[in-house]
């Protein structure tokens, strides 16, 4: 439940605070205590996000008998906003990135006698790494901040309380559709980004490096494995879940003042970036061990 998330964070922070008070002064001591306190708060924060995510999964798997159509309506709107509306900006960024990477690779690799590795470079840099990550950054900038702001404003104007008073569960009506919408949109946008970026790469390969379409496609498909596609999907799912949980959490953390809204939105954005990179490391590093 949502209140539980905040209770977890506040409870552990209070515990850390008490520990700080009990342990007394000393510069180094205080420093260690500060680090300890921040670490505990960090774990509590992650636990709160995990609780939010698990609650959303439970709501998805066992939706209540009431409000399904309304929840579906919110979900559809979220997919339209996060996924469909983001297609133009994603296309432009993906196309430009593909052009840049193949331009760099196409001019540098032949000097090292590795001109045939253009396909591998595209797969490794775009499909494995930059595609999912830049898509996540686009989604954070467009939709993550929008969610945090919207929920923050809803909290200040007591719309969240009004929903509760109408017997409409926040987790089911507000959080779950936004999470599911964001995860689905992130997954689709990531694959879309990869395809457009590869196409951008082909434009350069064709025009500048005179690599024919068939040779380019063959080079890319030879370098592409099922693992790459699986990793892209896992990253898309992980980034989507992380961004949605962080932005919902910070939006609902707003209490009573409009000035808290931009503060929480900024936190949501920064923490989303950090968490996406953390998820990226957790998913990528084991692959190379």
């Amino acid at each position: 439940m949502l209140p539980y998330n905040f209770a977890v964070t506040q409870g552990v922070e209070a515990l850390a605070g008490s520990w700080l008070l009990l342990s007394g002064g000393g510069g180094a001591h205080l420093m260690i205590e500060w680090v300890g306190r921040k670490t505990i708060a960090g774990y509590a924060y992650l636990a709160a996000l995990a609780t939010l995510f698990i609650q959303a999964v439970l709501d998805l798997l066992s939706p209540g008998r009431q409000g399904r159509r309304e929840t579906l309506r919110v979900l559809t709107r979220q997919i339209l906003f996060t996924g469909v509306d983001a297609l133009p900006v994603t296309s432009v960024i993906a196309l430009l990135l593909g052009i840049i990477i193949v331009t760099q690779a196409g001019t540098q690799l032949p000097r090292l006698g590795a001109g045939g590795l253009v396909g591998s470079i595209i797969v490794i840099t775009v499909i494995r790494e930059l595609g999912p990550l830049i898509t996540a950054f686009i989604v954070v900038g467009r939709s993550g901040t929008a969610i945090a702001t919207e929920l923050g404003n809803m909290s200040v104007t007591r719309e969240v309380v009004a929903l509760r008073l109408m017997g409409i569960p926040i987790s089911q009506f507000v959080i779950m559709p936004r999470m599911v919408g964001m995860v689905l949109s992130m997954l689709c946008l990531t694959f879309y980004f990869d395809v457009v970026a590869v196409f951008g790469g082909y434009l350069v390969a064709d025009a500048q490096l005179t690599i024919p379409f068939s040779a380019f496609v063959e080079s890319v498909t030879r370098a592409l494995s099922t693992t790459d596609l699986l990793m892209t999907a896992i990253k898309g799912f992980g980034f989507g879940s992380a961004v949605a949980a962080v932005c919902c959490y910070h939006g609902l953390a707003v209490r009573s003042s409009y000035t808290e809204v931009p503060q929480q939105t900024t936190r949501a954005m920064i923490n989303s970036f950090v968490l996406c990179l953390l998820v990226d490391v957790v998913v990528t590093v084991p692959l190379y061990l």
Binding site: G67, V161, L163
Partner: peptide, 29 residues
Amino acid sequence: VGTVLQQPGLLSNMTLFNNVLLPLRYHCG
């Protein structure tokens, strides 16, 4: 129990009609 607080909390992204309709749409499918 129907409740209206000092801040009534009409949903800002819905028209007045849809706001009033919301409880019915949610609970009376």
